[in-house]
Amino acid sequence: MSFFNSISRSMTRAQRAPKRATTPTSATFSPTEVAPPNNIPPSVAAPAIPKPLYLSSPFVEAALVKGNFKTIVMLPKYVDIMEWVAMNIFDFYTNLNEFYGVIAECCTQQSCSTMSAGHTLSYTWINHERKSVHLPAPTYIDYVMTWIQNLLNDEATFPTKAGHDFPQSFPSTVKHVYRQLLRVFAHIYHSHFHQILHLRSEPHFNSLFAHFLSFGREYELLEVKDVKGSASSPVAVGQLWEKWRDMGILEG
């Protein structure tokens, strides 16, 4: 099912009851479309990077949902695709927001001075002067989650009343939302997975992320390059996506 090919279809659907989660203070910047990698110094003999815990057994296998996620992301019969995507975007946002809220005290300006998502990758933000700036991870995530919250509260973007249709720009908007949510997932895996383990929440977090990846690939909200990054600046969770694909949890 191609989400972007469905835009020409009727967008009429049943009323969706308004439901919003809480987020931090309002952001004044806009999220970037593409995150340029950090400048990488000339080649030197680098020490071996230890294998991340989230790629190690038994943590990589920990999940609440067993089997392939394909079955739970398929469009239900008689459900409009726009409504289905909107509902899932809201659920992914709400659940991720709650997970981050639990580990937020460990994500500080000092411990996470950049929005890192890999050993050579830090995402940047476009400020009001249209310049790319590096921000501490908690500030970046605050801006992302507030920006998404504002979109969810915008009746013109995420309509909740019967008779109000989704805008023609909805597919491109949610694709941008999805990319930003991926960055929050990537930072948590890269910098805070040990805290997830300490809380014994890795089955819940893994299942949420696998569901997020499967849904994004099914409805063309995520591209492989978003998940894997570039050769010089790979996204840390790209290896996790490949591992789960090899395990049959996700499809290519």
Rank of each mutant, 00 (worst) to 15 (best):
Arg200Cys: 13
Phe193Leu: 00
Pro159Met: 02
Gly248Pro: 12
Val235Asn: 10
Tyr219Leu: 07
Phe166Ala: 06
Gly229Met: 07
Gly238Pro: 13
Ser2Gly: 09
Asn97Gln: 12
Leu199Met: 09
Glu223Gln: 12
Gln195Thr: 11
Phe3Lys: 00
Lys70Cys: 00
Leu208Gln: 08
Ser169Gln: 15
Met1Ile: 05
Pro42Ile: 01
Ile72Ser: 10
Phe158Ser: 10
Asp80Pro: 04
Pro18Thr: 15
Pro52Cys: 03
Gly216Pro: 09
Ile81Glu: 08
His128Ser: 11
Phe59Asp: 11
Leu199Gly: 01
Leu208Asp: 05
Leu75His: 12
Thr139Glu: 14
Leu151His: 12
Ser6Leu: 03
Arg183Pro: 01
Val184Arg: 06
Met82Arg: 13
Ile49Met: 08
Leu152Phe: 13
Met145Gln: 15
Ala231Ile: 06
Tyr178Ile: 02
His187Lys: 01
Gln180His: 12
Phe185Asp: 03
Pro159Leu: 02
Leu250Ala: 00
Ala17Asn: 14
Phe99Leu: 03
Glu61Val: 01
Ile196Tyr: 13
Tyr123Met: 01
Ser26Lys: 15
Pro47Lys: 06
Ser214Tyr: 00
Ser172Asp: 14
Ala46Tyr: 06
His128Phe: 04
Pro138Val: 04
Ala21Pro: 13
Pro31Gln: 06
Ala17Arg: 14
Lys66Pro: 02
Pro47His: 03
Val237Ala: 06
Lys243Ser: 14
Ala35Ser: 15
Met115Leu: 08
Ser30Met: 04
